[in-house]
Design a protein around this nucleic acid. Sequence first.
DNA 1: TTGTATGCGTTATCAT
DNA 2: ATGATAACGCATACAA
Lengths: 331, 331
Amino acid sequence: MSPSDPAAPTITNVAALAGVSRATVSRAFGNPGVLRPDTVARVRAIAADLGYVPNPTAQALSTGRHGLLAMIVPDIANPFFPPMIGAAQGRAETAGLALLLGNTDEDPAREHTMVGRLTLQADGFVLAASRMSQRQIRDLAARRPVVLVNRDVAGISRVLVDSADGVRAAVEHLAELGHTRIAYLAGPSRSWANGQRKKAVKRAAERIGVEAVMLPGQVSSYEAGMKAAPTLLESQVTAAVAFDDVLAHGVMAGLAQRGVSVPGDISLVGCDDVLQAQVYPPLTTVSAHAADAGAAAVDLLVQRLENPDSPDRRVLLDTSLIIRATTAPAP
Amino acid sequence: MSPSDPAAPTITNVAALAGVSRATVSRAFGNPGVLRPDTVARVRAIAADLGYVPNPTAQALSTGRHGLLAMIVPDIANPFFPPMIGAAQGRAETAGLALLLGNTDEDPAREHTMVGRLTLQADGFVLAASRMSQRQIRDLAARRPVVLVNRDVAGISRVLVDSADGVRAAVEHLAELGHTRIAYLAGPSRSWANGQRKKAVKRAAERIGVEAVMLPGQVSSYEAGMKAAPTLLESQVTAAVAFDDVLAHGVMAGLAQRGVSVPGDISLVGCDDVLQAQVYPPLTTVSAHAADAGAAAVDLLVQRLENPDSPDRRVLLDTSLIIRATTAPAP
DNA sequence: TTGTATGCGTTATCAT
DNA sequence: ATGATAACGCATACAA
């Protein structure tokens, strides 16, 4: 049975040594206000040199609060997520919470299973770019506080990296450079960001009066980008906006292989700014704020945990175009 | 008090509906062998349509097993770690375990605190590139199973990405290209990998009869690499091995800013192979196997969890040189 | 201000 | 093969 932990002191040990009841020890930590200051001090002192730490599991069983947040991402290998995860973990830590991390490989079923597996242990969920159905998300939200990142479901708190502005600016930028036929290279079809970016390209193109051609896509990876290069060439465009930097980067490589120069022959814009200026040529891209998004999501969640009937919020993080070296006048 | 979870069915509900005792329900899940097959079936059926799931917290309190693994990394933003984390989470999931993730920002104190915070909730720890003292690590290992990644402490299970071979090959490769004075650009001083690589460069240089100059370093980042470029130039070498790809990449940028050509003027070798061929020019580097390391670490941990007195193991993952485009004959 | 008693959901020991 | 029952460590009504 019982503790895998060799001799972890419990509330009972402390109580005995301090000559008080277990309830008093409990209060010395959880509700010191009701105790006489000197009892609090004495109990804590004894607890300290005994090395006593309240057992979170027992607390959880009693209070229903586990001190655990779960964060689910579709692909931790995508450089968009690590900064977000890091920031989220940091904020959680500040709030005294630990972070459970789940990676779904873009698989909605796996995500659903994982969420089920964790519902009884996590106090709340951050679902990043969730691929689950609205229904599944709502079901979860009925049982635990949920904050979405880059997924827009009414009635549920969410933080959205709003790339509309940035993408529009990108299209305008390309138009000003004389491009009249611009492609959008899609990412994962279930991705909210993909939908938003696609639409933004389409709209901006319409408004400005340039032609937009939508190229299909499934995953975001360097390899996928390389493979997309021929398709892009066939589409006869002189410029393209890619779903994200990783994809854009792959495309650049694929184009280079075929002797096509960027930005000489084709201009390219990425999204998310995860590569900074770290590739050559430095990629023109639409900024994101992945870390901010992660932090904001956890803050929202913590707030909701502290005040269960605080209303759901929809926070938008805006973006802008960062012009570097992969865009140039149309040939 | 009690469950934050609205109406989660418990073992008691199932027992009542099935007309059996709670003990029987428990056994239907945890020890079905001792029950009559038809009772197992009946109980499970009822549990299923009630939506009953055993409460892990209660299980943990009773058995001491939480179903949680903790993984601590120094810097999740470093591309070396995400694949490792992803693999670790995957293996854990397969074993029915969830993963707690901690990011320490290379801060030993923060790591220690975090570990303390989690000892009572996690069944075991994977400490990746731990910055804690041997003593602290041993203390933890006395309370919970621990597996180290890229940290070599006797008596504690560890998986080491052994870059000695790869680095030696790199130095030989450079020597063959005619380089006679080679720099090693250090990374974090507390990093085991850094120590190993430094030593490997030194030894290989000695053996081959070329000169090795050790350049100081603290952190591994693109920016740090850029800043290291002048130092590298002053050192009068024609080739360098950098602590990792991120650093090497920064150096390339810094060199480029100063009009120094890679590999024309200076040859450069990275470590870890996290950039694949994704930068220009593609980086010659020493392979690592971050994902394998993460998977192996979790496997070791799981094994140890299942058989508490299995001996500690020291698994070595070997590396090799991947020649791409940043190395060339000495000018 | 502090103590007593009970419950949280499960596993495990001991009966039957 | 199954049932009673006592832990597991803590929080909280209720008493005092």
